[in-house]
Design a protein around this nucleic acid. Sequence first.
DNA 1: AGGGTATATATCCGTCAAGGAATGTTTTGG
DNA 2: CCAAAACATTCCTTGACGGATATATACCCT
Lengths: 105, 105
Amino acid sequence: MLTDTLRALGEPHRLQMLDLLRRGPLPVAEVGEALGLGQPQTSKHLRALREAGLVVAIPDGQRRLYSVRPEPLRELADWLETYRSVLATNYDRLDTLLARFEDTE
Amino acid sequence: MLTDTLRALGEPHRLQMLDLLRRGPLPVAEVGEALGLGQPQTSKHLRALREAGLVVAIPDGQRRLYSVRPEPLRELADWLETYRSVLATNYDRLDTLLARFEDTE
DNA sequence: AGGGTATATATCCGTCAAGGAATGTTTTGG
DNA sequence: CCAAAACATTCCTTGACGGATATATACCCT
């Protein structure tokens, strides 16, 4: 679900984690170290990402290599596509906005 | 901030609101009615969206017309772009993933 | 000016999520 | 088989959040 993806990434540490894993798979310890997180917190956040389908864990000896799973990101990209017309238009000047309102009124 | 955008949209009602406003500006009452929300709840969520910069309110008599502000969505799109290579690759079959690990090991 | 409408804000409550410390589990190495 | 390493899970506490109700504010109309 799109909402789950957004909620999972709405947490700063988890967003950083994904950005970190974007470069390639990493074990839990390195992820935690990179973000300055404790080991339990790291595992917890990785679990949240995993449950959102944003990440997969692959056993490698006594470690677990986490890597990005792109599916949810594709879904997010598809959703953003539906805003294509909105993104194209330059709505950001207030007067433009007001002008449009007067038109449609 | 990207996190704020994701966090704001991580709430199902707010995501629905944005999807609703994607078609064009609406007053609070119609937004609430469309989502089956009470008036205070509607205002509260719209405020959250507004504070995330995802929405603007324009006074129209005693009403306020809310509409989408594209800036944060552009930022989101830009962020997604950095995952372009990840999205392109077909990571989704587990064996493919494993094969890649064995390669890089 | 007054009454009604549309929206915003305040408050209370229940719930959930994040951080921290301790413990459990699996795997490796000897 | 035992001890240590790497993670996962649990429990606790605390702060934030969403829903509901009540109240305040702003605006229009007559």
